[in-house]
Design a binder for these strands. Structure first.
Lengths: 256, 256
DNA sequence: CGCGAGCTTGATGCCGATCAATGCATGTGG
DNA sequence: CCACATGCATTGATCGGCATCAAGCTCGCG
């Protein structure tokens, strides 16, 4: 498993199969969003040996699956992923969507195997970060150590937010929160704040939000009627941002 | 903030106010459940300087609250905690219950402040672990480093399980899963596998499970009628363990 | 004893699930 | 180029699980 597609069996700097960018954090345009956030230039240079290789993941294929042996974590370079867990009886739950600069595979550290699936929702590329190497380097560079700890902690905090959403919000609030979160992350990556293309199906959104796909679809339609969004299949344009925001904050919600 | 109750301003080994046990992992009876799991004896001796002090938290009081400056993580020595997050509009969600040997405060690492409340559900005692000290020591001892990473990862995996529960299970399944999880953790600490006393109210259980307290109460009653449990307020006895288990696995559930 | 916090139980209603049909876009083979 | 299949999205009708509202009940405690 974990066979490589293109860059296997050759070093990153091999002239035979040139990469568009060097496999190195120091020359990566995502360094302000990814693991090296906040590291000084000299430290970034020193962790260039972190990324062993890059790996292509075609749309629909898994980067790893539940039960795969854990060896590396992954940083999304381009593309879009979902992660999902499943129970014994086959129900499954999307636990997150990951875009450029975000890490995948942190679940695997606790055991020696992964405990969820990571599936590419479009043709994607990830940086492979051997975990033992990350641990070595983070013993040397405490900036890196601190940064890695922050990223794990941020994941925990994010999960708590999702629990709040799943445990106490109604369908409209959930979808609004989801859209606002997506646009915020897209904006941080230089995309428009008001217009986006969903990479996932209604069913995947529903699984993430604890709703059925029909409910997701209906809620999109309602948002459109209410003049909050323009929805054309997966093309979304946010027409009334404050309206969406106050939906999440519950100011127009009688309850509570 | 973070003022100490009893052991403040004196070292752990001070003869003036003797502790029942030394403030040291090496002599702690929880070392097989807590941070030092799996560390060799010599390494355990070397991390004894990790725990700065102990701290009492009376029932109903907070160990930390959202917004408190983050400096330390905490290990539960005795007692029982809940953690909860809340949204701007005042809704709140219990994100977990912690018992002896489990860590609190990992949420704080990502920022410089805590992002949830940790409240004692009974008179409790925690070990205070200054985070900078933990980072120092885990740079020195890679067993400790590895162990800490595993604990953070396990928290992420646990959170994913809660998402699955909140996103796709019905009331009975949620409560059954909750009880099985509790008894399993209690059993690992030497308590009975079949009989437990709930430390939390119906409302807190409901908040954790995304249900209203009435639904929790009704579901307890139903389990009792069905011969799965004996329920006397917070005294629970599990009568039919396999029955509970197959509720969670969904084998008696028509759907899916 | 009486008070109050927490728990139980009943009656009712609503939100979202479910079931079902249709629409729309893309791709494929005749 | 059209006919058809396929995957995904929309929309409607109906149903059911859980929330809500409203009493009582239990137990510990001042």
């Amino acid at each position: 498993m974990l066979t490589d597609t293109a860059t296997s069996a050759m070093t990153a700097t091999s002239p035979i199969k040139p990469e568009p960018f060097k496999v190195a954090c120091s020359s990566c345009n995502l360094r302000e969003l990814c693991l090296p956030v906040g590291l000084s230039q000299e430290n970034i240079d020193q962790i260039d040996s972190l990324v062993g290789q890059r790996k292509q993941v075609p749309r629909g294929e898994a980067l790893f699956r539940t039960g795969d042996v854990f060896q590396s974590i992954f940083a999304v370079r381009t593309g879009f992923f979902k992660t999902c867990v499943s129970s014994e009886d086959g129900r499954d739950q999307v636990t997150g969507f990951q875009m450029a600069g975000e890490l995948l595979g942190l679940d695997g550290i606790s055991g020696d195997r992964h405990s969820c699936d990571a599936v590419a929702l479009e043709d994607s590329q990830v940086c492979v970060i051997p975990f033992s190497r990350l641990e070595e380097l983070s013993r040397e560079f405490n900036e890196l150590q601190r940064q890695f700890h922050k990223i794990m902690s941020r994941e925990i905090v994010r999960d708590h937010g999702v629990m709040l959403l799943l445990g106490s919000m109604r369908a409209e609030e959930r979808l609004a929160a989801f859209l606002l979160n997506l646009t915020q992350r897209l904006q941080a990556r230089g995309f428009s704040a008001s217009s986006l293309v969903l990479r996932m199906t209604r069913e995947e959104i529903g699984s993430y939000l604890g709703l059925k796909l029909e409910t997701v679809s209906r809620t999109f339609s309602k948002f459109q009627e209410d003049g909050l969004l323009e929805v054309k299949q997966r093309q979304i344009r946010i027409v009334n941002l404050p309206g969406l925001q106050q939906l999440v904050n519950g100011t127009n919600c009688a309850a509570n």
